[in-house]
Amino acid sequence: MRIAVCIKRVPDTETKVRIAADGKSLEPSGVSYDLSPYDEYAVEEALRIKDAAGGTPEVVVLSAGVGDAATQIRKALAMGADRGILLKGDLPFSDASSAASALAGALKELGADLCLTGKQAIDDDGLQVPAYLAQALGWTLVSVVTKLELKDGKALAHRQVEGGHEVVEVPLPAVITCQKGLNTPRFASLPNIMKAKKKPLEEKALASAAPRLTVLGLALPPGRKAGRIVGQGPDAAPLLVKALHEEAKVV
């Protein structure tokens, strides 16, 4: 069995966003990058499946984009993945079909029984690469999964919906997108970080595709107007209720 995990290098959650001079992209100076948090659940889940199966499944990590994503692939290798594939090239920001076609090409070559992804990349918050990927591969897709069981060539998954969860069973191969709650990602130990440096990381140029979306502009959100402290302690409660009722008119 082979499990592919797609991971993305994204600005970390502490990033203070500044807009670059082109008015269309993030000013990259001073930004530090990390593995997208949901992708960590994907890596962890693959490792758990591997561990539960006595270590036989191979876990292959793929990332498409800038060459620096090798750092994030190494992080996944340090967690325990077996090898990495880096698809190097320029991907237009937020164009899911470009990223998915690069990943699909590599996955077809690789062959896998299962592909795990994050439910959402926290840079473009695009929510769609896995769907394009599943379509390109002809695989089934289950999104926003908080529990996963594999049995007899099938995946039984719990997917989060408003007010509860759905239980869905799909045949493998499948693309599963991982949500917080699925597991708790492990930390890489120092010896494993050292070992990861020697694990295979193959680099290839990605095959570029025609983008389906064009970026017209990137801007900071409109600032919120200054608020006010209505008072101190419980005696401020009536003042707050009055303000919300009469001024803001939300209650």
């Binding site: 993030l26 920001f93 840079d123 473009d124 979306l213 064009t214 970026v215 017209l216 900071l220």
Partner: peptide, 20 residues
């Protein structure tokens, strides 16, 4: 058509057009 959507978890707003 042009669509505006939050990116970077709402820290910026992206405006996109459609190629097809």
């Amino acid at each position: 058509f042009a669509a505006t959507r939050p990116v970077y978890a709402g820290k910026a707003q992206l405006k996109v057009g459609f190629a097809a």
